[in-house]
């Protein structure tokens, strides 16, 4: 039976969390303030024109989307930076020469990145409570979606961190792919508000499934069924696991 090197997992996890706590202001304050601004801009400006969606006030309706927006970007950013920085500074030698398997490396890096995102998601949820009335009909499902999304996108961020060989590449996917997909994924609207053609196009956007499922846990309203959302997230998670396994097996951009 394979025994895990828990000391290594804990050491990596603790080290990554300590890095986050050192820059707590930047790590937490920035997304929380941004979310507050979204409420002011979208909630007040647009909310005064769109009063309700599916019987939910517009301000409350955008809460799950806003949480997902931050969780996705922060998961990717934390995990990608976490593994890219040792590559950049050269300290990766220590991880590669340590008696640890790729699963333990993932537990350390992805576990820490996902923890940060979950904490952030909960903080944003708390912040939203100051602006709009909140209702969570399925709290365990909400927590499950939050954890699953954080883990999946932290894993995706980890892959980006291994793939990137410069700070530019590190930013390119979050900025050029993830942020547009999140904005177009129904963070601020339901895709049912779109013309038929664009509704069909939107279904090709994986973020739609995340936000839809997450929103269901709050208000029991969704663009696609929860089961489909879960299948899509698990499929993406499986693809990420497969890719990261291949990266470690071949030493892609890690070992010669």
């Amino acid at each position: 039976m394979m025994t895990l090197n828990w000391h290594a997992v804990y050491a990596l996890y603790k080290f990554e969390m300590a890095r986050w706590f050192r820059t707590l202001g930047q790590s937490v304050a920035s997304p929380v303030i941004s979310t507050g601004l979204y409420f002011v801009v979208f909630g007040s400006a647009i909310g005064s024109r769109i009063t309700q969606i599916d019987g939910i006030s517009y301000g409350s309706f955008i809460v799950p989307g806003l949480i997902m927006l931050s969780v996705l970007t922060e998961s990717i950013s934390n995990a990608s930076f976490g593994i890219y920085f040792p590559k950049f500074t050269g300290t990766i030698y220590e991880i590669l020469s340590a008696p640890i398997s790729y699963i333990e490396i993932l537990f350390g890096f992805v576990g820490a990145a996902a923890t940060k995102s979950i904490i952030l998601g909960i903080l944003i949820l708390g912040t939203a409570g100051f602006f709009v009335p909140l209702q969570i009909k399925h709290p365990f499902l909400m927590l499950f979606f939050l954890i699953l999304t954080s883990v999946t996108f932290s894993l995706f961020g980890f892959i980006i961190g291994i793939w990137a060989d410069g700070f530019e590449k590190l930013q390119i996917i979050p900025i050029l792919v993830i942020t547009p997909l999140t904005f177009l994924g129904g963070s601020f609207y339901t895709i049912n508000m779109l013309p038929d053609f664009w509704q069909k196009v939107s279904l090709a956007n994986p973020v739609v499934y995340l936000i839809s499922g997450f929103r269901y846990s709050f208000y029991e309203t969704s663009d696609v069924s929860v089961a489909v959302s879960l299948v899509m997230i698990f499929a993406f998670l499986a693809a990420c696991i497969f890719l990261v396994q291949w990266m470690f097996k071949t030493g892609y951009k890690l070992k010669n």
């Binding site: 000391h7 804990y10 050491a11 990596l12 050269g90």
Partner: peptide, 28 residues
């Protein structure tokens, strides 16, 4: 291993980085 390059975590303390190394190599 002490590598040729001075590869260090510039923003970590001496204590933290040495403690991390011990943990990475599976020691309590």
């Amino acid at each position: 291993l002490v590598p040729q390059e001075l590869a260090t975590d510039a923003f970590e303390t001496v204590w933290d980085t040495v403690t991390l190394s011990r943990g990475l190599f599976g020691k309590a």
